[in-house]
Design a protein around this nucleic acid. Sequence first.
DNA 1: AGGCTAGTGACAGCCACTGACAATTGACAA
DNA 2: TTGTCAATTGTCAGTGGCTGTCACTAGCCT
Lengths: 210, 210
Amino acid sequence: MNLRERKKRRTRDALLRAALELFATRGYEETTVDDIAAAADVSQRTFFRYFAGKEETAFFVPRLAETHVVEAVRARPPGEAPLEALRRAVLESWDTINEAIEELVPIELHMRVYRVIESTPALLAAHLRRAAELEEQLAQIIAEREGLDADVDPRPRIIVALFGGVIRVTERLWSAGDDLSLDAMRQLTTTYLDQVGPALAENWRTKPSP
Amino acid sequence: MNLRERKKRRTRDALLRAALELFATRGYEETTVDDIAAAADVSQRTFFRYFAGKEETAFFVPRLAETHVVEAVRARPPGEAPLEALRRAVLESWDTINEAIEELVPIELHMRVYRVIESTPALLAAHLRRAAELEEQLAQIIAEREGLDADVDPRPRIIVALFGGVIRVTERLWSAGDDLSLDAMRQLTTTYLDQVGPALAENWRTKPSP
DNA sequence: AGGCTAGTGACAGCCACTGACAATTGACAA
DNA sequence: TTGTCAATTGTCAGTGGCTGTCACTAGCCT
């Protein structure tokens, strides 16, 4: 890797870390691009040469995680039922994701930024749109696994929408709670996924909540 | 109603219609607030006195629809299973919603704007966030119906997330297709909701798609 | 009729973002 | 090494969304 390449990487990382640090401490809306550029000691114009917009810095790490999840789903054995494959892929990918993140920014900083994403309307909106795109990808993968065409058979999109919905609910609850550990997230996710069956029962009153 | 009040209503409607017309013909990003204000023959500053932002004009009509849906769910008999109540509420509310919309803008214009929302990243993101808020409301209503606490029992949020996921999939497919009629939407929705059960089956290969 | 106030326009300014151009800096061959 | 080329950067100017301020006008109320 060149001196030039290394310099670029350093600048990008400096901008990224500066941005996330500022978002986590001061808040997203309260941070201007000029602040970020100043903190990384480059011009505002340079910031926009590394990131398409302020938003992109906030989603740089989540994008990593998404990539891992997609690959984890692809790697699942074809025998598994779709929902099972999605569930196992997500649960197992979280372990490995953390290492990849830590190379870029401290996990703890990432957690704090995640909270900011969930509590900042503009960022939450962007997050949900990204999630929708991810779901589209996953639906295609599931369709392939099952030898179906997602544009004809509704089931791949439905099962992914269901799964995605549950994940988003748990994400929200997790980020609103006070235990931001990986274990808490894992616990919440399995609990909620286990409730999908009961939720579809005709009459809820026969079986109380856990 | 005052002359003053009437004048205000007229100004707001003029701005709204001008905005939607411009969005539908020229596109959202290609329309500036100055364009909208000019088309309605008021200053840009006045535009911002009627709408919090450009985005709000695009979601003015959808907001109406959401209100109707919430009320329709509230009006469902308590005996129905949750998913059934949601399904019937949505299907039945569409009929009545259209009349309310037509008082404000032509339905046909609304349809064209809806397409713009689905195909404009910034608007789609906002739409998904609004949908998430709506789901939260519906989860509370469902929890009440069943005499549960949505913060303790996961099932209300899960069932609403599932339902919302399916609705969003159908919205997307509908707006991407070429039959923008109400009947097409209704058809698509019932078909997809009917596939929820099959989608949860362990092995999809036993039963092909319809 | 005349004072009161809600609604408006004009103006200035902030912030995200972009295009254009000039200055700088690393890469690479002579 | 040095000179040349290309990549990277900073500066400047401009656009569009959005907000605060202030003076002015138009409808309301007694």
